[in-house]
Amino acid sequence: MDPHELSDLYQEIILSHNRRPRNAEILDPCTGQAVGFNPLCGDELTVYLRRSDVQIEAVTCDCQGCAISRASGSIMTTLVAGKPVAEVEQLITEFTTMLTGDEEPVIDLLGYGELAALAGVRKFPARVKCATLAWHALDSALHGRADVTTE
C-alpha cells in the first residue's frame, strides 16, 4: 500500500470532523429521523432532519463509529442544511457513486466542498460503507424509512 493513499484517507479535514463532529446533537423538533447501522463493524448513527416540502432546514447526525463514518456524517450535516431537497437527493446519489462507481471520479472540488476529502475512501473498499452510512440514513430520513443497514 502506498503511504500516500493513507494520507488520502485520513486527511486533516476528516481528522478534524472526527475529533469534533459538527451538528452531533439530537434535532428537536424534527420532521424525520433514521438510524444507520452496520452490524459487521458496529458503526451506528442517527440522522435527524427538519425539512419543508422543498427545502432541508437542518440536519444533525449522532454517530458512534470510526473516524470515516463520524467525519462523513459531520460533513454531511454542514453541507445539506439550507439546500433544496432535490439538490440533496442528487448529492446523495453523486456521493455514493463517487465512492462505489466503476469509473474513477472526476471531482469538482468547489462543488463538493469538504466532501471531496472523502474521495480517497474509494481506494479502501472495506471502508466505503463507513463513508456512505450517514448518507443512506439521510436518504431514509428523507423518505420516511426508519432505519437502514449497510450490509
Binding site: 493513499e5 475529533r19 459487521l40 470510526c66 479502501f124 471502508r127
Partner: peptide
C-alpha cells in the same frame, strides 16, 4: 484512547500488519 479499532486496523494494514478489529463476535462483552 480516541482512535476507533477500525481506523487502527486500516493503518496497520497499510504497513503490512494484519489484525482483527471490532466486536470479535462478543458484542455484549464490548
Amino acid at each position: 484512547d480516541g482512535i476507533h479499532p477500525h481506523d487502527i486496523g486500516t493503518v496497520l494494514d497499510t504497513v503490512g500488519i494484519a489484525v482483527r478489529t471490532g466486536h470479535h463476535c462478543a458484542q455484549p462483552l464490548m
